[in-house]
Write a protein that binds this DNA or RNA. Structure first.
Length: 491
RNA sequence: GCUCGUAUAGUGUAGUGGCCCAUCAUGAAGGACUCUCAUUCCUUCGACCCGGGUUCAAAUCCCGGUACGAGCACCA
């Protein structure tokens, strides 16, 4: 018997590159979204949502919506400055602007309309049970008395929520699912609740204390995804039950739920647990200098430290969208970053624990060293070899014989360096160095193990603009902060 | 407790019944190149959680176990 299909299969063995194929996707018709809470700027973890969703949008010639889920003014109040910052960070990360911006707090009327629709059509009800009481009902699978309210009564109670007759805690709107569902999380879940926006005004101008009733995430997100025509949702697997809740709501409305993909949790081994709320408190208390404090895992801090957007993109795409919970060493992000910056980074000498030494022997007036060893066309750095002193690192100063990189083999006798040979004559260690006249006092800022070290030294003078990625010879890569300060990125 | 999910080298990842004594990256070790402990290149090391079952054939399907994670908020 012939089996031609087996032969065909034999040919394809290539490894899949990049992101897995999107199911049920049509080129040009894909709509995705990334929906952070603007209670702080983006952190490392948010970058995953932005990168994965944004990359799919680009790959499928579709759209990415940046949506601000700012429907809580009490527990996780929004930070007014975060909206714009997140927008800027999104563009920096993706390399393009998100196609649409949606702000949930500006869409409350739409959510109200759907809530009313839900009450009128009888698949939602106003529940006046307290949280504890309802919890009992949920575990015992019993229906709460409010479940049988007439549509008319529900509308009346709804108006009581809206007009302030009810206070926060008095009533919520629930979606009628079923109390005997296997998964307790899905039983008549809450869709909207009241918030004391007088005591806790929403920080958005124009929103403030305007609304007493606010949608919860599951309801707001579900309705908005439908309104925006979202086709694919890619999010953390902690939101799996959210999908199930929302699917139940979609069935009531007669809508069909988007394709959904989940990823697991990512921990960076070197970083502890940082929550946006906690960082915010620590910044306000002065423990950190700001959201871009190099010790923090925020995008602004990583950017300031010299991590590039493309390294971040490559990193997250390589991790992919598996549901595994993973823990990665930060060096894996650094490995991507090196690939992005090394080819451009000009070389510079930074002398830690500088020791001043005097050169003895005949030599030329100048010494040229490469700006970048792999790119001779990028020119040279010229050291001025007058009779002035040179700087070398203490560690090198203590060696008997060393080679001053690009110049000469020398022997050290106290502070005197005697030239032995210009060509390389043996295998003595090669060290970086610089004449005093070509250097200035400088600081290397290193953030490590949650601390900031400011290393003083002498750095080769340069005119690179702020933000330039440089490589400090024999030390590692860094980002120019000003003409005498470099932030250490990684080795 | 109830519910849901995941399990491939040190770390990530490919793989959806025969291309697999398992891919790629990173890491480690060694080497080449190089006047940086950089970059680049080469070599080597190293894994299908455990136990059953289905099948001619299982990393891949089924059942059980174990481990880890998540949800059961009037947070997102």
């Amino acid at each position: 018997m012939e089996a031609p299909h087996l032969l065909e299969k034999r040919e394809k063995k290539e490894r899949r590159e990049g992101l897995p194929e999107l199911k049920n996707a049509t080129k040009g018709k894909v709509v995705l979204r990334f929906a952070p809470n603007p209670n702080g700027p983006m952190s490392f973890g948010h970058a995953r949502g932005m990168v994965i969703n944004g990359s799919y949008a680009k790959e499928w010639d579709g759209e990415i919506i940046l949506r601000f889920d700012d429907t809580d003014a009490v527990v996780k109040p929004p930070l007014p400055s975060a909206y714009e910052q997140i927008e800027r960070e999104a563009e920096w990360l993706l390399g393009f602007k998100p196609h649409r911006i949606v702000i949930a707090s500006e869409r409350i009327p739409q959510y109200y309309q759907h809530a009313e629709d839900m009450l009128q059509r009888g698949f939602g009800y106003v529940c006046q049970c307290s949280g504890e009481v309802f919890r009992e009902f949920r575990v015992s699978k019993t229906e709460c008395p409010c479940r049988n309210n007439s549509e008319r009564l529900n509308i009346e109670l709804w108006n009581n929520m809206l007009d302030g007759t009810f206070k926060p805690g008095d009533a919520v709107v629930r979606v009628k699912t079923a109390m005997d569902l296997k998964n307790p999380a899905l039983r008549d879940w809450p869709a909207l609740r009241m918030q004391d926006t007088v005591q806790h005004p929403h920080p958005r101008p124009g929103i403030g204390s305007k609304y007493r009733v606010w949608p919860l995430l599951d309801f707001q997100s579900a309705v908005e995804d439908h309104l925006q025509g979202v086709t694919h949702i890619i999010r953390g697997k902690d939101l799996m039950d959210s999908t199930r809740k929302q699917t139940l709501l979609y069935q009531h409305f007669g809508w069909s739920y988007p394709e959904t993909i989940y990823w697991g949790r990512v921990k960076v081994h070197e970083w502890g647990g940082f929550s946006t709320s906690q960082m915010r408190r620590d910044i306000e208390s002065g423990e950190f200098s700001g959201w871009d404090d190099p010790r923090l895992p925020t995008l602004s801090a990583l950017k300031k430290r010299g991590i590039t957007a493309s390294a971040l993109r490559n990193f997250w795409i390589e991790l992919g969208v598996t549901q595994k919970d993973i823990s990665v060493p930060i060096s894996s992000l650094f490995a991507h970053n090196i690939k992005c910056i090394d080819d451009d980074a000009p070389r510079l000498a930074f002398i830690r624990e500088p020791c001043k030494v005097q050169l003895v022997g005949e030599h030329d007036g100048t010494v040229d060293v490469d700006v970048h060893p792999n790119h001779p066309t990028r020119g040279v750095r010229t050291f001025t070899m007058d009779q002035g002193p040179l700087w070398i690192e203490r560690e090198d100063f203590e060696k008997q014989s060393i080679r001053l990189k690009g110049f000469a083999d020398v022997s050290t006798t106290g502070e005197i360096l005697t030239i032995d040979s210009f060509p390389r004559s043996d295998r003595r260690p090669i060290v970086h160095w610089a004449p005093d006249v070509n250097t200035k006092d400088a600081t290397l800022i290193v953030a490590e193990d949650g601390e900031i070290h400011r290393i003083q030294g002498r750095m080769e003078s340069h005119e690179y603009p702020v933000g330039t990625m440089v490589q400090l010879e024999r030390i590692g890569y860094g980002r120019v902060l000003d003409d005498s300060t470099v932030v250490f990125t990684h080795a």
